[in-house]
């Protein structure tokens, strides 16, 4: 067969995959110019990707558009990646962590998360003067934003955006608690003094309610920033423990499917 008539097909593809010098040299040149026959073969190619061509192509094509933040998608993903639900141990005692800051931590007692009126903050034993308030907006499936009051009913497709007021710079953990006392840790944050949206980098932090049902309580636990480094804060997230002296603020929600409301 003369070189001029050769196009990509199953046979020449095998030759390329086997690194036949003749095929490699010919097609390196031939494919540098438009060829409808070869492009039709590549369009149909749907099997083994011996050259990693599919991924290289998709990666390049996917990089063309501007990068856009996706706070809702991240909220859903973070929840799926989150630590398994745990039950806080009632009456847990203070323990010393081996973290750099050797901060004193303890597990949150369920009563502390559920026993107070909404809108107030609760200081745990030995607490300082940190004042903390938690409010929230829901981004609904149709894109609308709705301010939330305590006990608000929301569909599981909603994403909750948190706003806080803190009297000072603070480290914080956000958790979602169920009536049975199980708690899902959602993230570790640094709070600024004043009233702010809870943020992760440049994006708003959102809480996905996907997979949830019934009453839930969002709990923001914060403690003055001086008490330990960010590593200790992240360790607190991993262990589901907050330092002695943390202040808690919370918001009750009810997750109900749209068609049951």
């Amino acid at each position: 067969m003369s070189d001029a008539g050769r196009h990509l097909d199953a046979r020449s593809w095998r030759a390329l995959r086997d690194k036949s010098p003749d095929a490699v040299a010919y097609f390196a040149d031939h494919l540098s110019r438009p060829c409808e026959v070869c492009e039709a073969f590549l369009e149909r190619a749907d099997g083994e990707d011996a050259f990693g061509l599919e991924a290289m192509t998709d990666e390049a094509l996917g990089t063309l558009a501007p990068v856009r933040e996706d706070a809702v998608g991240w909220a859903r993903l973070r929840k799926r990646l989150g630590s398994p639900r745990r039950v806080w141990r009632p009456g847990a005692v203070a323990v010393a962590m081996a973290a750099a800051a050797a901060m004193v931590v303890f597990a949150v007692h369920p009563a502390l998360l559920t026993g107070e009126q909404p809108g107030t903050s609760v200081r745990l034993k030995g607490g300082g003067a940190l004042a903390l308030e938690l409010t929230a907006l829901a981004r609904l499936p149709d894109g609308a934003l709705r301010p939330l009051t305590d006990g608000a009913s929301l569909p599981p497709e909603a994403v909750v955006l948190i706003r806080y007021r803190s009297s000072e710079l603070a480290h914080a953990l956000l958790a979602l608690e169920s009536p049975d006392g199980s708690v899902q840790m959602l993230g570790a944050y640094t709070l600024e003094a004043g009233t702010h949206d809870l943020r992760e980098g440049d994006a708003l932090a959102g809480v996905s309610l996907e997979g949830e049902h019934g009453p839930k309580t969002l709990v923001l636990a914060a403690w003055p920033r001086g008490q330990g480094a960010e590593e200790a804060r992240d360790a607190a997230l991993a262990q589901g423990r907050v330092p002695e002296g943390a202040t808690l603020s919370r918001l009750g929600l009810r997750v109900t499917p749209e068609d049951a409301r």
């Binding site: 390329l16 060829c35 492009e39 590549l42 094509l61």
Partner: peptide
């Protein structure tokens, strides 16, 4: 979109072969 994607694949494969990876 698939036709354009095939055009990209053709061009990238050409470069891959020229680089001696094939």
């Amino acid at each position: 979109l698939e036709r354009f994607r095939a055009r990209v694949k053709r061009q990238l494969l050409s470069r891959l072969l020229a680089a001696g990876v094939g």
